[in-house]
Each structure stands twice: as C-alpha cells, then as structure tokens.
C-alpha cells in the first residue's frame, strides 16, 4: 500500500489490455467466417487461441453453436487469417478511418 509506485506487475486480462487501445469501429465487420460448417468441424479452433485480442469465441448455447466475432476489438495483425487451417476467414482491412489507432506503436 505505502510503496504505491512499486506495486508489482499486475496480471491484466485481455479486456484490460484492449481498454488501453483506441479503436474506431466500423458499422460492419471486416472479418467473416466464410463457411460456418467448417468452424463446427474445426479441430482446436486456432482462431480462438492465436488472436491477441480474443476476437473469436466459440459459443454453444440455446441459439446453437457458432463462432462469435468481436471485430471491433481487432488489432488488424492478420494472424487469424494465416492460422486458420481452412483459410476460412474472409479478411479485409477495416474501411479507411476505422479500426485501431496506436498512440505509441
């Protein structure tokens, strides 16, 4: 408590981290799974682990099983497009003026 400026490294969640990044989301997603059937069958679903912004989440609930894509958190790194074993991600840059803007980089 007293040594506030020496408080130890705190473990941060992805949400904590994304909170530090400035985004201007577009209205429409720039990311899309081309064939949802492939996602249903996909082993390991690497998009849900490699993404540094946890954009992809596999959800199974009363609405069914599906890949949820929180595109507004995308850091535009491209990892998901290359890591998807089926090349099932339709990937584009967000429209100009949108997406991430780093202040430090």
């Amino acid at each position: 408590m007293s040594e506030d400026n020496r408080s130890p490294v705190r473990r941060m969640t992805v949400a904590d981290r994304l909170f530090l990044v400035s985004f201007r989301p577009a209205h429409e997603s720039h990311l899309r799974a081309k064939d949802p059937g492939l996602c249903a069958e996909c082993v390991g679903r690497p998009c849900t682990t490699v993404c540094p912004a946890a954009v992809y989440e596999w959800l199974e609930d009363t609405d069914g099983a599906r890949l949820v894509i929180s595109f507004e958190n995308c850091l535009e790194c491209g990892a998901c497009r290359l890591a998807c074993p089926e090349r099932n991600i339709d990937w584009a840059y967000p429209p100009s003026g949108h997406g991430v803007t780093y202040r430090y980089g």
Binding site: E3, D4, N5, R6, S7, P8, V9, R11, M12, V14, R17, L18, L20, V21, V50, C51, P52, A53, L75, C77, G78, A79, L82, Y102, R103, Y104, G105
Partner: peptide, 30 residues
C-alpha cells in the same frame, strides 16, 4: 499470445524493471 506476454513480464529478472509502471498500451503485429 497475451499469456505468453504475462509469463515474460512475471519473470523475476524482469519484474524489477517493470514494477510500479503503468501499462499504457498493448499491441500486436506479425
């Protein structure tokens, strides 16, 4: 990837360089 980064930041050699600092940005790139 962020778990990888947690492991790096928490290494005892690195902590003394980071402790007390404010994380001001997180980023990713290929």
């Amino acid at each position: 990837p962020y778990e990888l980064l947690d492991g790096v930041k928490e290494h005892p050699m690195l902590r003394p360089f980071l402790d007390g600092g404010d994380v001001v940005e997180y980023s990713a790139h290929l």
